Computed example of a mutant assay.
Amino acid sequence: MGRVIAVANQKGGVGKSTTAINLSACLAERGKKVLTIDIDPQGNTTSGLGVDKNSVENTLYELLLGESGIKEVIIKGVVENVDLIPSNVNLSGAEIELVGVDEKEYILKKEIDKIRRKYDYIIMDCPPSLSMLTINALTAATSVLVPIQCEYYALEGLSQLIHTIELVQERLNKRLKIEGVVFTMFDARTNLSLQVVENVKDNLKQNIYKTIIPRNVRLAEAPSYGQPINIYDSKSAGAESYRLLAEEVINREDE
């Protein structure tokens, strides 16, 4: 059975999509079969994996509303060993349309359960809010990976996110656990980045990945070419970091 990992943080701009795209691609590079699910109406993960989000017919929106089955919405082989469930701006309407639907928190879980055996990893890119879409992802997930930007307000939204995860554990998904925190956009030249890392380590009783993702020009450029970093610039610092993160994620499974 595949591990289902939600990449979540209700703060925007912390590197969620970057992490979902590149962790997926680096796990796939290690021979793992990966399904990436774009749960963000911005559709950044969809376009970052080279799919035109505006012209795609079947998306997560159609899946959640029961207009398409899960097999119809999966785009096969966007990168070698990576399949994708895309999303676009239509998804922002799902929240309203699902009001009054019974067990709406479980829609995604029920669909994922149908295909989970086919994948080693299912990586979900969550929107930057604690919305019904994020709750759906957390209910379907086995664990949550939290990217944190190395900046002054890094810890601010984190206690809220952890509280939400605990509520989901209590009421909807007993098995959910925090996979770990990964630091992103680390700038070794600033004391602030170092302070944030130390601060989070002191205040957070969570697993923290050893791998720290640097600020990296190539990493920022890659999505505009619709490629993960390990394909766009295989030797860049960003590619090396995400390979190390993928290795840690794989090893954590063996513990």
Rank of each mutant, 00 (worst) to 15 (best):
I213C: 00
N230Q: 08
V51W: 06
T211R: 04
V197T: 11
N9P: 11
Y152M: 12
V200G: 01
G226W: 01
L219C: 03
L98W: 00
S17I: 11
S241E: 04
E253S: 12
G77R: 12
D38K: 07
L138Q: 05
I75L: 15
A137Q: 02
G226Y: 01
V73I: 14
K205W: 00
N88C: 10
D187G: 03
N173V: 04
Y225Q: 06
N22Y: 10
L63R: 12
G93L: 03
R117W: 11
N216K: 02
G48L: 07
C150F: 09
A188M: 05
I75E: 07
K33L: 11
E248Q: 14
L158D: 00
S224R: 08
G180Q: 04
V196E: 03
V14A: 07
A222V: 07
V4R: 08
G2N: 14
V196A: 07
V146C: 05
D102M: 15
I75P: 06
L167A: 07
D254L: 13
S68W: 03
L176N: 03
I75M: 13
T19H: 05
G100A: 06
E111V: 04
V99I: 15
G93R: 01
K53F: 01
K11W: 13
I85N: 09
E253T: 08
N230P: 03
N88D: 13
L161P: 02
I5C: 11
V78K: 10
A140P: 05
A25R: 09
I212S: 05
K71F: 03
K104T: 02
S68Y: 10
K210R: 12
S241D: 05
G77P: 03
E72K: 10
Y61N: 09
N9G: 12
A6V: 11
Y232Q: 00
K205Y: 03
I122Q: 07
T139A: 12
